[in-house]
Design a protein around this nucleic acid. Sequence first.
DNA 1: ATAGGGTTAG
Length: 733
Amino acid sequence: METLSTPLLSLPRYSSSVTVNNDHDHPVFLHLQRCTNPSQLKQIHAQMLRTGLLFDPYSGSKLFAASALSPFSSLDYARKVFDQIPKPNLYTWNTLIRVYASSPEPLQGILIFLRMVHESPYYPNKFTFPFVIKAAAEIFSLCVGQALHGMVIKSSLGADVFISNSLIHFYMSCGDLDSAYRVFMMVGEKDVVSWNSMITGLARRGCAEKALQMFQKMEEQNVKPNDVTMLGVLSACTKKLDLEFGRWVHSYIERNGISVNLTLNNATLDMYTKCRSLEDAKTLFDMMKEKDIVTWTTMLDGYAKLGAYEEARQILDTMPRQDIAAWNALISGYEQNGKSKEALSIYHELQQSKIAKPDEITLVSTLSACAQLGALEVGDSIHAYIKELGIKLNCHLTTSLIDMYSKCGDIKKALEVFYSVEKRDVFVWSAMIAGLAMHGQGKAAIDLFSRMQETMIRPNSVTFTNVLCACSHAGLVKEGKTFFGMMEPVYGIAPELHHYSCMVDILGRAGLLEEAVEFIEKMPIPPSDSVWGALLGACQIHGNVELAERACSRLLELDPENNGAYVLLSNVYAKTGKWDGVSRLRKHMRVTGLKKEQGGSRIEVNGVIHEFLAGDNCHPLSKEIYSKLDEIVVRLKSAGYVPNKSQLLQLIEEDDMQEHALNLHSEKLAIAFGLLYVEASQPIRIIKNLRVCGDCHSVAKLISRLYNREIILRDRYRFHHFSGGHCSCKDYW
DNA sequence: ATAGGGTTAG
């Protein structure tokens, strides 16, 4: 040991004749107390080893506690000290369990506990249990905790308030609220910690209302809340997004003289930003004398999530240390507000600046931005980066990758990721089902759902939305009905509006319009705009004017701004030749100022995203694109193509003008661009913001045959894979 | 010598 030859401290030398057995006031303990760095600790360790003092259980426990609990010592070092102690006493065992329980390896705490029970002469005492129960909570092992609970009762320690409190915390973190409540009720003299454990546990479990009720009861029982209580209460307010109550809590803290620390201020700040009050947040932020990285990040996140990007950027640029969480807050702020391009550009800036290293959270947000944009090449490069760094895929990352590949049109890669991982949670399964659904592989999605049922992973409400969506895209009416019928009785999941909309979509698309109407009439909850929207969509496909008008007016009652409704109804009129209806609608839209959402398509070539709007000539290569488009039309017409104008909103009198408008559709521009610039071996991948129109759909099919190119088109609802003159949707969309 | 907390995430 280097410190043996170069002493940093002048320790008195002890002869081996020193009586160590009862020497509890040995001067070395004073040094241990004053020890401030690892070298000094090592030196004392060496000295004690040399003098044999380490082998006295009491002295050994002192050195061990110092190395285990000091902020500058590592757990590995403490473990080495422990292993040198021949007969650790109960205190030493307890301390080792304690440090493992709050270490990154809490399982070790359980294992040490078992060793103690088997190898040592000691039986766990009232100090042991809180530590080992904490370890069980950390690994979310309900059965381990239950066994410990049993031991507690057998040891007649069931009434100990410290142990009970740790059990409450344990049951809460395992989600067993009933057991937590039972233990809580059994505590005779509930202290503030008993209440805190219930309140924070409930708040974290999403039972915000119950947490607040618990706080109220606590007040009624005249138990004085402390800062931790208020953290729990604030966390409940934040979950409820209840600004008024949050403000009341803030003033309650001030009125009741609760010691305000930095953490409590940070939690209050977070409550204000999450409840969307930037004014309250800013006032508090400016008033806070002490700020840490969490304060800055919380404020940054608040700005970014509420769209105040300049302020968010300002915080990032002025905060004392830009850790990865700060960058993540900015990236996810952009991403969650649909500003994916900005999110990607911040990610690139982060990578270039090397200020902080992207972590899993960065990658999840960035992949989600890629998914929104359909930026396959960027998404691919992130996947490569993950492999390069050897980052192990957790379920979050797996889900994001599957979602990215699915939404970027590469369902094969999505499946590869899915099959490559060992661990799959409900989100991973659901994402894969959704991916297959959007690619029209309804049968495969359903098969996957059956395989999911062979695992222990229980489907949730989102899983069912995706399964029903798969049925809808693949026209699987019978299956859809079966799954919908299973939700409540078999899985205990009450169908929500999403599920009802899917069912209306399934029935309506299949032409069962009457049945869809009956289904809506029998709904136990009021139908939403999306339910009527699904019916209206079905009316468009099947050209049912009377029902379309009914659905449209119900939809507009609920959502008067819904311009999509007019477009759909207009399409129904056009399809059935009711041109007076079309012009009436057009007039109405002009008068009310409602505009059809502009169609736009995107295509990524060599990592650059090119965007096209209907009829735009902003692209630098616009001339070339239009002449390619002319060539395509000539070639298509000679192959027998007749333009289909039924889905044109504008009533244009002259026939060739109509045709011209059709040719300007953004997806056609993007396809022309793709034919020019995407390597022939690669599919042409296009993303459209609206649904693809019937004419563009037939054109894409023909192009795939005449030019022998694969075209993968993502529209608002799903993917269309065109190849050899056919589409994967089998014209069912 | 004992328990309880805040920010970034699908």
